[in-house]
Amino acid sequence: MTASARAATAIWGRAEQQDFRSRVRGCLLGGAIGDALGAGIEFDSLAAIREAHGPDGVTDFVAAYGRRGNVTDDTQMTLFTVDGLIRAQVRRDTGAWHPPSDVYGAHRRWYATQHDWGPDERNQNDGWLAREEWLYAQRAPGRACLAGFADGPMGTLDAPKNPDSKGCGAVMRSAPFGLLVGWEPQLVFQLAIECAAQSHGHPTGYLSAGAFALIVHGLARGEPLDGAVQRALAMLATRPGHEETTDALKHALGAVRQGLPTAERVESLGEGWTGEEALAMSVYCALVAEDIRHGLLLAVNHGGDSDSTGSICGNLLGTLHGETALPPAWLAEVEGRSTALELADDFAMEMTQGPALHSPAKSAPAWLARYPRG
């Protein structure tokens, strides 16, 4: 083991590594479960949901895209965000360090899954995630995401892609930025908004994504949820165009004090199609959740973008409580569980023991095959 590898391991004790891995697993799997719970009712009104599933709405997975437990583009893109963050760390050995480019490259690989029949085994630079055949399924991908990742040139915050788009498609893929626990909060926020601007260029579209990443960051560091939200509000206040996102989060905090949580109170915060509404609804559900099951069912039973609010709330609650708090029956049935687990463990290993896996001088061949530098 090199000196840098020994230093990295010393920073992360065994208990700290296990806690972090549990939170990463919880984030990715919790998001997938929430996504799958909402996938089958995404376009239904609350009245239609109750008519079809009873007065409590859905209380379990319902069929979506051919079976129970299937996820949508929300989970697909979240996984590719993780892949891009790992690739950024590996590519740093070459002297190249621009994480937005690596995340953009990962989202371009997701875009390919929406157009190709299956993996291109000849392209070894794609890495292992892009060779997972189950990801090559169209699950109602958002138009802004498809347009943003359709061509090569990247956008910037000064010249973002889709400058009028403030849909929730950037928020729902941004939880992994918050798992960069070794980064300062302002850097996490900046990376998240730069990557969000590749598809959702309206300030509300990318600032809501940045706020979400910052809240996850606080939870991953062991902060309480309300404190993480307050930190996000403080960061938002420094950015032009923050008002819609700030107001939405403040309304979510206010709704907590208005009485027992109900589907109608969730709907008072919006429908979830835009970034700030999806974030506010999900934060509210996480704040009032008695446990993960209660919070996720509250997050999906409304007449709006149920899979996205379920996914975002699942990311929050999974990060807050860790993987062992996830309902086992849902965990056993959710699509892509083995892939999400494998990716979560790779991310945790990279962030805690990266120098033992790769360096400019020597790297584990298996790791570079999984996360190529090219």
Rank of each mutant, 00 (worst) to 15 (best):
R6L: 13
A8I: 08
R14F: 10
D19F: 03
D19E: 15
F20D: 02
S22R: 14
V24M: 04
G30P: 00
D35G: 09
D35Q: 09
L37V: 05
A39D: 07
G40H: 05
F43I: 04
D44I: 01
D60E: 14
G66I: 10
G66L: 10
D73Y: 03
D74R: 01
R87Y: 03
G95V: 06
S101Y: 04
V103T: 05
R109E: 12
Q114G: 11
G118C: 07
P119L: 07
E121L: 15
R122S: 15
R122M: 10
N123M: 12
D126E: 14
A130L: 05
R131D: 12
R139D: 11
A144C: 10
L146S: 05
G148Y: 04
G148N: 08
F149H: 06
F149D: 00
D151R: 12
G155C: 12
L157T: 02
P163H: 10
P163C: 10
G167P: 02
C168N: 15
A170F: 00
R173Y: 09
S174L: 05
F177C: 04
F177G: 01
F177W: 13
L179G: 03
W183F: 13
P185G: 03
L187Q: 15
V188G: 00
L191H: 12
A192S: 14
E194L: 02
A197G: 04
G201M: 04
P203Y: 11
T204V: 11
S208E: 08
A209N: 01
L214S: 02
L214W: 03
V216N: 01
H217W: 15
A220D: 01
G222V: 13
P224T: 12
L225Q: 09
D226P: 08
G227L: 12
A228K: 06
V229E: 03
Q230H: 13
R231W: 03
A237K: 11
T238K: 14
H242N: 13
H242A: 14
E244D: 15
L249D: 01
K250D: 13
A252E: 06
A252D: 08
L253T: 02
Q258D: 15
P261K: 13
A263E: 15
R265K: 10
E267W: 08
G270D: 01
W273S: 00
G275R: 04
E276N: 10
A280F: 05
M281Q: 13
M281N: 01
V283G: 09
L287R: 14
D291E: 09
I292L: 12
L297K: 01
L298R: 02
L298M: 14
T309W: 05
G310T: 09
I312W: 00
N315E: 08
L320W: 07
P327R: 13
P327H: 11
P328Q: 14
G336Q: 07
R337T: 10
S338C: 07
T339P: 01
A340M: 15
A340C: 09
A344M: 02
A344V: 02
D346C: 11
F347I: 03
K362C: 09
R370S: 08
G374T: 13
